[in-house]
Simulated assay, not measured.
Amino acid sequence: MKRDARPDFEAFAGDLFGEIMLADSAAAVSVQKKPLSRFVPGLAIAAIAGAAAAWLAQNYGVPVILAGLLIGLAVNFASADPRTHDGLDAASRHGLRAGIVLLGCQVTAAQVAAMGLVPFAGLALVMAAALLAALAAARATGQSASAGLLGGGATAICGASAALALYGVIGRERIDQAQFTLTLVILAAASAIALVTYPPLTQMLGFSDAQAGFLVGASIHDVAQAIGAGFAVSDAAGAQATVVKLTRVAMLAPLVTLAALWIAKAEPLPAGVGRARVPMLPGFILAFLGLVAINSLIPLPPMLAAHALTASKTLLLLAVTATAMRTRTDLLLGLGWRAVMPVLAATIASLVVALAFAQWVIA
C-alpha cells in the first residue's frame, strides 16, 4: 500500500519503525518546519494571566505564585483550544528551567560559608525532617514515593521553584499534572500562612534576631516570603534569614541529583515508557551551578542580580500559570485530602525541628 508523503507524524503512529523510516527518507520527503508563531497563542494567554496575578500581588498582597495558580486554574478552559498547547507547554517546561537557572545569580559560596557550621547542621536537620515526614505521610496515605519526594523536597528547599525542578526529574509518568498542581497550591498557601504567623511566634517566644532569622529562613518555603518574614522581625533577623534561605536554595542542585538517582531505583519506569534513564545532573541544574560558581568568583553587580531575580520570578510565574492552565480541575478536585498530606506533614516537621533548634542550640 502506498504511503502518503505528507509530513504527518500520525501516519506512523502505529508503525514501530516510523522514526527510522522518517530518518531514512528525509531526502525524499520534504518535512515542513512548524512556524514559531504556533507558540504565540499559548504564551500570550499565559502572559496575560501572569500579569493579572502580578497585579493582584502588588495591589492586594496576594502571594504571586498562589495568584498565578488560581488564575491559571480559573481560565484553564482556554487550553481546550489546541492552538494554545505549544505555547503553554513551552512556558511550563522551558520557562521553569530558565527561571531556576537564573536563581543561581542570587547565591554565592561565600554566603553558604558565612552561615557557620552550627546553623548549617540545623538546616540539614530541618531539610531531612521535611523529606522524611513527607515520605512517611505519602506511605501512610497510600500514595507513591514520588508524591512524598515532590512534597518533601519542595518544602525542604524553596517551594514552587524546587517543586518545578523535582517534577522535571520525577516525570509525568510517575506524578500526573493534577497532583503536581495541587502540590503547588498547598505550598503557596502554607508559605503565605507562615509569612503571617511565624514573625509573631518568634516575638512571643522572645527569640533573638539570630534565632528568629534562622527559624523563618529554615522553615518558610518561598524565598521572598522567608526573607520578608525575617525583615518583619528586624533588619538583623532579615539578614540572617536571607543567608539561611539562600543556603537552602543552593541545596537545590544536590537534592535534585539525589532525587533523580533515588526515584529511578525506587520507582523504575516500565521498559519503553518515558526516558531510558534519569540523568545524574539535568542540564538546567548544571547551568544553575555554573551561575553560582560565576557569582562566587566574580560577584555580579547588584543591579544585574536584581534584574536576574525579576526575570527568574517572571519565568517561574509563567511556568506555574501555564501548568495550572493545562490541569483538568475535575482531576484536581478528585484527588482528595490524601494528596495534601505530604506537604502538610513536611511543613509541620520543618517548623517543629527549626523551632527546637533555634530555641535550644542557637544563642
Rank of each mutant, 00 (worst) to 15 (best):
L252V: 05
A145D: 07
P342D: 02
Q359V: 00
S161I: 09
L261A: 03
A46D: 01
S219M: 10
L16I: 05
A90G: 00
A147N: 11
F120C: 14
A138H: 03
P82M: 08
A276M: 08
A13W: 07
E267C: 03
L132K: 05
G168S: 01
A57D: 06
V101N: 03
R174H: 08
A232R: 11
M280E: 10
T84I: 08
F9I: 15
A339F: 00
L351I: 13
A229R: 04
T108V: 02
I294M: 15
I157A: 07
A137S: 12
T202R: 01
G95H: 11
P41G: 00
L317Q: 08
A232Q: 11
R277T: 12
V278M: 06
F12Q: 03
P35Q: 02
F180M: 09
A253T: 04
A163S: 10
I20F: 13
I227Q: 06
G122V: 00
L150T: 05
Y60K: 12
R277N: 06
R174I: 00
G217Y: 09
I100M: 13
L304R: 06
L96S: 15
W337F: 13
A260F: 07
L135I: 05
I294A: 15
G68A: 10
T327I: 08
A224Q: 01
A138N: 09
K313T: 12
F214A: 05
L66C: 12
A311F: 06
A47I: 13
T181V: 01
L315T: 02
I71F: 06
P254F: 09
T183S: 06
A46S: 05
M303T: 13
A260R: 00
G230W: 08
L166N: 04
G14F: 12
V62K: 09
I362M: 11
G61R: 03
V243Q: 15
A229I: 11
C158D: 04
A98S: 14
A236H: 03
D330K: 08
G99D: 10
A80C: 05
L132G: 09
G68I: 07
L166H: 06
R172E: 11
D24H: 10
A28W: 06
T108F: 05
L164N: 14
I65F: 11
D89E: 14
A188F: 07
L73M: 09
A113I: 14
A133W: 01
A5H: 14
M325H: 01
K33C: 02
L22M: 14
R38S: 09
P270H: 02
A259C: 14
E10R: 15
T329L: 14
Q143W: 04
L131V: 13
V361Y: 01
M204N: 02
T327R: 00
L255M: 08
S79R: 02
T347R: 00
Q203K: 11
Q32C: 13
V29S: 02
V244Q: 10
L331D: 15
Q32R: 11
A293V: 15
H94T: 08
A190H: 01
R174P: 11
T321Y: 03
G228A: 14
V185Y: 01
T257N: 03
K313V: 03
L258P: 01
G148Q: 02
L289G: 03
A26R: 11
L309Y: 05
S208T: 15
P82A: 05
M251T: 10
P254L: 06
